[in-house]
Design a protein around this nucleic acid. Structure first.
Lengths: 322, 322
DNA sequence: TGTTGACCTGAAATCGATGTCACAAATTAT
DNA sequence: ATAATTTGTGACATCGATTTCAGGTCAACA
């Protein structure tokens, strides 16, 4: 454990001078600077980060809070860690499994200065609880929320969903079935709005086809395909919550001998890894770059600078299912 | 920021007494204990973790080093974080992108006491370099290595691959083509050994069918299918590096109008998320529990206890491609 | 010659906790 | 009654850095 005192002794100076020589702040004669650097080299000295954090009150550590690290959360995490590390920050994980008590632990870690800031990928806690911790450090959310103290870098799913709908229309599909996620999410409302406006634009009946709520897994996709086979004529196309639901539909169709896109078309969402392997048309969004934006917001607040945010856009990835 | 001194002042005692009252170590009268607890409650006091780390030399933070956080690395990360958090540890990420200088940064973080220990999921650095940092804290590797100071919790791929081969044999496939990963990996050698022993057991010619080296992506799988169509009769079955290669083969077969498993069978490896959606037969391994074992090894070294490691086994997940 | 300011240095305070130590009071043992 | 423990408490040192402060040298300038 070579510490600053030993370096000072070896170089024949005081600890203050060692600190100055190594940090480059304040005056140090060339002569002593050389001696300090030599001693640091000789003892392979590296300052203790805990001491530094205690003294300065800054840890250069950020907390990332998520239920689990799979699918698009992995993409976000990767983008966030990259941006953080490029700027000399380090990222600590808090895995909640959607448990609010675990979310509270992450908030407490902020209060206890284990991290300088938090990014919530998804959460279930009361927004007011989370906001009350902003006095201990910046908090940013990926999940779409509205609060003056907790900025959110959400995807504008109105735009993304509209791209999917426009694409389906352009390919000639008119009877479109919406498969939505959790109805309480603001994102779901955006998609409903997009569909309403889409129908108005092309003079389609928004009620022509029933929609499905609270769908998110492959098994949901399978259920929907089977439901339609038993309950009337299957729609021309499905606009789905995400690629997982879409994958379930594709798999079930294959099993039942239905042809895609002839019998029905499917458009996914997220462009996850496997969408390519399944030849699934989907909507892509640069989640990793958005995570970079989340980091920029945090850094802006911590260092009182004004990094610009990168504007991001959805785009269609057309494959064989439409 | 309310610190221990303020609590002391409010409760009318010394900081030492506050520390004793809150930690439960040493003698404190009931009366003062109550006063301290009340003051701590009133000021919503939580000890500063940096001060604690500095004083005790223990951070209860672990570093996880990986090139990126996708696929099975995500599974490992999830399992590791869960085990760590259950035991009061926190996990800090180091994303290397296979860059040795980034790996060095993680090692330096250990030396500078930002973390108590490290787990390398995968690495490229010299093993001797990594081992030289074990004097600063325990280091464990998931990648299979052999070193007295750096334990590794690898998968015994001999067993896993043998299960795949036995399965293919049982289903009647005799002409089996091996698709291997990076030839320098110890894992690859294990698989080659498994195939040798498999052929000996059933008196098959190990050279009956050429094998492929250094394959790992869907595009590799596609290439292999096309290669066989141009270069002789396609084998009965393929035993593959991982699910990604297998998925590429399945996708290409579908595109070319080949039937699976009639024209050829495919067995994947890893049982990633999408294997189910692709109806891919594959070999499963409880990676998340193995990550739990990695954590146990670390905890054993840090706390000088002797937690047992959970024995883990591969198993076959049969689906439609065999 | 006196003043100003740049340069240089180390002692000491500080960050926020823990833990040792000395000492006093209360309790128990002899 | 005296000795030996147990209980209870605060002063102070410590972890390893940074930073303020006071004081010193030295050259330039009025």
């Amino acid at each position: 454990m070579t510490n600053i005192k030993e370096i000072a002794k070896r170089a024949g100076v005081s600890p203050s001078t060692v600190s100055r020589a190594l940090s480059g702040k304040g005056y140090v004669s060339e002569e002593k600077k050389r001696r300090v650097l030599a001693a640091a080299e000789e003892f392979d000295y590296a300052p203790n980060l805990n001491a530094l954090s205690l003294k300065t009150g800054i840890t250069r550590r950020l907390g990332l809070v998520a239920p689990a690290f799979i699918e698009s959360v992995s993409l976000f995490t990767g983008g966030f860690v990259r941006a953080a590390e490029e700027n000399g920050y380090t990222v600590t994980l808090f895995m909640t499994g959607s448990d609010v008590s675990k979310e509270l632990e992450a908030l407490e870690a902020l209060r206890r200065k284990q991290v300088d800031a938090l990014v919530f990928v998804m959460f279930k806690s009361d927004l007011s609880l989370i906001a009350s911790y902003t006095k201990y450090g910046p908090i940013v959310s990926w999940q779409r929320i509205i609060h003056p103290d907790v900025p959110s870098v959400f995807m504008n799913q109105y735009d993304g969903y509209m791209i999917a709908l426009e694409h389906l229309y352009a390919r000639g599909y008119r009877r479109i079935c919406n498969i939505y996620g959790a109805p309480t999410r603001l994102n779901t409302q955006s998609r409903i709005d997009a569909f309403r406006d889409f129908c108005a634009k092309y003079e389609l009946d928004p009620c022509a086809c029933p929609s499905f709520d609270d769908m998110g897994n492959p098994s949901h996709g399978e259920q929907i395909v089977r439901w339609w086979l038993e309950n009337g004529q299957i729609p021309d196309a499905f606009a789905t919550t995400n690629d997982r639901v879409a994958a379930g539909m594709v798999a079930e169709a294959r099993r039942l001998g239905l042809r895609i896109p002839e019998d029905f078309a499917v458009c996914g969402f997220d462009n996850l890894d496997f969408a390519d392997m399944l030849d699934l048309t989907t909507i892509h969004y640069p989640v990793n770059e958005q995570a970079g934006n989340a980091f920029s917001i945090i850094r802006n607040r911590i260092e009182h600078i004004d990094l610009p945010l990168r504007p991001l856009k959805f785009h269609l990835v057309q494959r064989g299912t439409t």
